[in-house]
Design a protein around this nucleic acid. Structure first.
Length: 757
RNA sequence: GAGCUCGUAGCUCAGUGGUAGAGCGUUCGGCUUACAUCCGAAAGGCCGGGGGUUCAAUCCCCUCCGGGCUCACCA
């Protein structure tokens, strides 16, 4: 053995050894499915983005690996199942950036071609994450690896959609949704991030009113002025109408009374723009106001705005304000007005509330059982405070917009008959002669010049009116008119619609043997920031499809942050690359650094210094082992008989305590504490004290009891350390002569009496 | 506006109803035949302020101050 431990000499070798011996593939013993002691233990890996290399957050998979390695050593058939996610928006966003750098955009391609290009792009990168996970030592069963776009997984995801549809839980409706004009897609409520901003608040003369608004450019879409029903100032006007002389002509306005208006804000009167503001939309619904869309999906004012048409929102705002001022309708500007504004989580562009038809899941019937399951602790959420957060969100949950106007993802399996729905708006790439060019229009007009075939082949996107008829699943011919000009919806699923079914799809729901044996899974560990996005959806889907929870424990871990408590991100330049750390200090050092001394769900501070300290610890383990192994071997590591020496009795008693503490702390998810216990024992008790005490008994002739105790304590320590630091412990274990099994499948020590079975 | 969470040694963080812990850093001394990625010793904290419960509080309760976070349709 060398003087200094060299991780690089062992890690790869040992990992492939584990793989070759198939230790990561559990032995299925169906008879024991319900035997508590031999019950399967399953963790499904939260799938990383197939397209991106791992970052420090992914290194937190170490928590799951600790659990799996521990359970495997206690003898349970343990499955840790890997996979990757196509990550719809994320990946398309990255790909579009790449296109842009090449001077192109998504509009240069039809959707089939674009999809294929992204597919190829992802394929090029897909192996990276896998290699990296192996380097980190994760005991994943690669023979069962999955990808969200695997055909069998897609099949299940689409079947779920069909089933939801049959159960009346899918609807397509024109509602106020969050739309990003830059990404060109709608988002769910969860994907909007809010930011405090200071914007001018404009006070405008408005018929008999003066009212305050931050968005004068949307005034062309106003259909009413709303006041509070009890507001004395305006009571007489409620129910009346007036003619407003707008910049593009006179317009009839209603005055409505609505509780949503705060009489203390501004002047207590508010313009109602149902097409472009969530509150106004609801007021509009209550008072049956027309919806006039003055901002298009391209983020420019529409033709309804006269000479303002075509202007971008900000330009329009400036011009409208200037003209209102010239006209004398601008009463004052409050420049210090701060409010919260919704941004696209992905590109940070301002989210534009838009009324467009989207596909929704009626969520309450799914949420109810998911709430009950958590309340009854069928799913235990750790740490406990996340249970409250979960329940609070679930109890106020709103229907889920699952449609995205992007190509990268499974397409919603609904078909429109063009003959029955001539008002479907279609964009396609006409490649019939010369340079391809984008053609956009209603089918009823397009069909005069283009064949269905050309439209279908060049299809980019379609927008069906909310009244359009559609069929689910795909019919051969239109069931109403027998027409054959059918187009599939071009919207794709929210990525979370697919990953929300991950515990089911990865195991081969509904009838595979794996599914029957491994579902429900044991633990789901992830960072708390996707509690709603993912964890909640998995619980809902799991219960909806199987009646059983998808996992028994949902364990939330925290963010990995830098020393200034900031989240690591490329733009901040504060990333520590986990793979680089593995190269420098070894996987074990990084793994230990990620768990050592951390508390459940508090930020995890990782610094290179800490990793270095753990590297030193690895070296300590190496050298203590070197010392022990340089002496004759006298025991199998698995048992020891009592000793009369107080030194031996002392260290063995301390070891017992440590076994208990480590076991208890792993079982209760206090990994930081567990790591500290074994660290403290091994370094400061075993090395600093016991080895020093025992040295006189080793020279000149080693004394048997001393050797026994050394060997036994080392062997047991290696076991306790193995879940945390799998490589070095296995490496040393295999140097010990006459081992029956590899450490990874050895038996976890039991305090009280050690059993060799 | 509602809720959650944190405030412990210079730094980063654990922890406990009964005279405070780790890693890194600092000071002093050591290449002691496993390890200088080491060993030995030491300095360093009214455990955010105030009040309460208790025989006893850093740990429980209240309140204040100071960070962080989540949720919420206020123009």
């Amino acid at each position: 053995m060398e003087k200094v431990y060299q991780p690089a000499e062992f890690e790869e070798k040992i990992y492939s050894q584990w793989e070759e011996k198939k230790y990561f593939s559990p032995k299925i013993d169906r008879k024991n499915k319900n035997n508590k002691k031999n019950k399967s233990f399953t963790i499904i890996l939260p799938p990383p983005n197939a397209n991106a290399p791992l970052h420090m957050g992914h290194a937190m998979y170490v928590i799951e690996d600790i659990l799996c390695r521990y359970r495997r050593m206690t003898g349970r058939p343990t499955l840790f199942l890997p996979g990757t996610d196509h990550a719809g928006i994320e990946t398309q966003f990255v790909f579009e950036k790449k296109l842009k750098s090449e001077g192109k955009s998504r509009f240069d391609f039809d959707r089939e071609t674009l999809f294929q290009m992204i597919w190829n792009f992802v394929e090029e990168n897909r192996g990276t994450a896998k290699k990296q996970m192996k380097k980190l030592g994760f005991s994943l069963d690669w023979s069962r690896e999955k990808y969200t776009l695997n055909p069998e997984i897609l099949k299940t995801v689409l079947a779920t959609f069909n089933r939801l549809h049959q159960d009346g839980l899918i609807y397509r409706q024109e509602k106020m949704v969050n739309y990003c004009t830059r990404c060109g897609t709608a988002f769910s409520d969860l994907e909007v991030v809010y930011e405090e901003r200071k914007d001018p608040l404009f006070y405008l003369k408005y018929g008999p009113f003066v009212l305050a608004t931050t968005r004068p450019e949307t005034k062309f879409g106003d259909t009413a002025v709303a006041v509070h029903p009890q507001d004395k100032r305006y009571k007489k006007l409620i129910g009346t109408e007036f003619i407003y002389q707008s910049l593009i002509g006179p317009k009839k306005m209603k005055v409505v009374a609505d509780e949503a208006v705060d009489p203390k804000f501004g002047t207590g009167a508010v313009k109602v723009t149902p097409a472009h503001d969530p509150t106004d939309f609801e007021i509009g619904q209550r008072h049956h106001l027309p919806i006039i869309k003055v901002i298009g999906l391209d983020g420019r004012l529409t033709d309804l705005t006269g000479r303002f048409a075509g202007l971008k929102i900000n330009e329009a705002r400036e011009r409208v304000v200037n003209e209102l001022q010239a006209k004398g309708d601008l009463v004052k500007i409050d420049e210090q007005y701060t409010h919260r504004i919704g941004l696209c989580y992905r590109c940070k562009n301002v989210i534009e509330p838009m009324v467009i038809p989207q596909w929704f899941v009626k969520i309450e019937p799914l949420a109810k059982p998911a709430i009950a399951a958590v309340k009854k602790n069928q799913v235990k959420i750790f740490p406990n405070r996340f249970k409250k957060i979960y329940l609070n969100w679930m109890e106020n949950i709103r229907d889920w917009n699952i449609s995205r106007q992007i190509v990268w993802g499974p397409r919603i399996p609904a078909w429109y008959c063009l003959d029955c729905n001539p008002n479907i708006k279609i964009s396609f790439l006409d490649k019939s002669n010369g340079e391809p060019k984008i053609v956009t229009g209603f089918y009823k007009d397009l069909k005069k010049n283009y064949s269905f075939d050309i439209i279908q082949k060049g299809l980019q996107s379609l927008t069906a009116p909310v009244t359009a008829t559609y069929e689910i699943p795909q019919p051969k011919r239109c069931s109403r008119c027998q027409g054959q000009s059918l187009l599939q919806e071009t919207d794709t699923f929210d990525t979370w619609f697919s990953s929300g079914q991950w515990p089911l799809t990865t195991l081969g729901y509904p009838d595979s043997e794996d599914f029957k044996y491994f579902y429900p899974t044991s633990v789901l560990d992830t960072m708390w920031d996707i509690l709603f996005f993912w964890v909640a959806r998995m619980i809902m889907f799991g219960l909806y499809l199987t009646g059983e929870v998808p996992f028994e424990i949902a364990h939330m871990h925290s963010r990995v942050v830098d020393i200034e408590r900031k989240k690591m991100s490329k733009s901040k330049g504060n990333v520590i690359d986990p793979l680089q750390m593995v190269e420098k200090y070894g996987a074990d050092a990084l793994r230990m650094a990620l768990v050592f001394g951390t508390a459940p769900a508090s930020d995890i501070v990782v610094t290179e210094e800490k990793i270095k300290a753990m590297r030193n610890f690895a070296n300590k383990i190496w050298n203590a082992s070197r010392f022990v192994l340089n002496n004759p071997q006298t025991t199998t590591n698995n048992s020891i008989s009592p000793s009369d020496y107080p030194d031996d009795q002392w260290i063995l008693a301390e070891l017992e305590k440590t076994i208990k503490a480590v076991t208890k702390n792993i079982e209760s998810y206090h990994f930081g504490q567990a790591a500290e216990e074994i660290y403290e024992f091994f370094w400061h008790k075993f090395c600093d004290q016991y080895i020093e005490m025992v040295k006189p008994r080793l020279y000149p002739v080693p004394e048997k009891k001393a050797l026994d105790t050394l060997n036994y304590t080392l062997g047991t320590s290696l076991k306790l350390l193995h879940p945390f630091m799998p490589f070095i412990t296995e490496a040393i274990w295999q140097i010990i002569p006459d081992q029956k099994d590899d450490l990874i499948v050895s038996r976890w020590p039991v305090a009280g009496k050690e059993k060799d079975d």
